[in-house]
Design a protein around this nucleic acid. Structure first.
Lengths: 178, 178
DNA sequence: CAGGATACGGAGCTAAGATTCCGTTTGTCA
DNA sequence: TGACAAACGGAATCTTAGCTCCGTATCCTG
């Protein structure tokens, strides 16, 4: 059940069902009684994460400073999945999967984050072309480098760079750096 | 041979050897005559990419404007792997692989990019704590979001945000956003 | 053109891992 | 305590994908 889910999350994507069961201290059959398929297990895991993201965002919305609110969502979300290679890999490999039944959590997350972004933009502390899509994209980038081996790469530095970019004044098309 | 390698690159990570062979228009045996193992094929592909990155960086070094030089390396490198899901996946799944025989290409890349970064930092157009490690990390982040499905996420926007962050003035520890 | 060498194709072998199935254990209600 | 039900464990099965092997086709060389 949930412990199995959690244990699975800590594992890589290639975690075998046998191993998952073993770590959860149950038989394989039991795992399959709770989740009809491996994909279902993955989906449940992903849904939990999105639920968590939504909660994190909701909490952060109480932050008074608009810029700090956005920064907090980003940092907390990253911290939440730090070390959870299972989630990472699930998201990566999900190129065509559709994660059935995640819509609700995603909708909440989207609504809250969108409000947080709008508030920051209105306050002039975040580039005014920043969207929820961008948010998802950069978060995806940050988390996927959590497993970047070479040198002591540190995702908090990555986040710092991105925040500086996100909070930089909006540029006109003719003044883009690249 | 190289056409097979290239065709493979276009495929996902789970591209089967059979399919790779088929697309290359040869038999499976032929593929294995050129690359003893699937991993060898992946490695060859990765080596080629790093070679290409090194060439891109070398060319960009001629750019007079220091900031533009760095931005160019980043943009061109990203463009080079755009659409090459094979490379992406290879890099992602490489958690423990060591990519034997890539050292040379990586050394060149590292040397050139480090010079480009130093020049930009010295010119004061890039945060002075930016390193080659950071470079690798953010590039990894950008490329891994190339396959980010949700909404019309656009990696060029991602790059733009990161460039703004990279070129933002260095912050003191007590003025970090997050 | 003969003979050997080199390269090719792809059926089939094998391992790995997801899933099924059934005998056993544990829990519940009279 | 006995009988039925619910939950379990894990060996056995099925499927997939990497890799091997051998018969065939192509290319030299004399």
């Amino acid at each position: 059940m949930s412990s199995g889910r959690e244990l699975f999350a800590r594992d890589g994507p290639e975690a075998q069902m046998d191993e998952i069961a073993a770590r959860a201290g149950v038989g394989i059959g039991t795992v399959y009684r709770h989740f009809p398929t491996k994909e279902a297990l993955l989906t449940a895991m992903v849904r939990d994460r999105f639920q968590e993201f939504a909660e994190i965002a909701t909490l952060a919305e109480d932050t008074v400073d608009p810029q700090h609110a956005l920064a907090t969502v980003m940092r907390r979300s990253a911290e939440a999945v730090e070390g959870d290679m299972g989630f990472q890999l699930a998201m990566m490999g999900s190129n065509e999967l559709e994660w059935e039944g995640i819509e609700e959590q995603k909708a909440v997350l989207s609504a809250v984050v969108t409000r947080i972004i709008r508030r920051a933009v209105d306050a002039g502390v975040v580039r005014n072309d920043f969207t929820f899509e961008d948010f998802g994209m950069v978060m995806c980038g940050i988390t996927s480098t959590m497993y970047y081996k070479p040198g002591g790469a540190d995702w908090r530095r990555h986040l710092a760079v991105i925040l500086d970019g996100v909070c930089a004044p909006t540029r006109q098309a003719d003044e883009q750096i690249a």
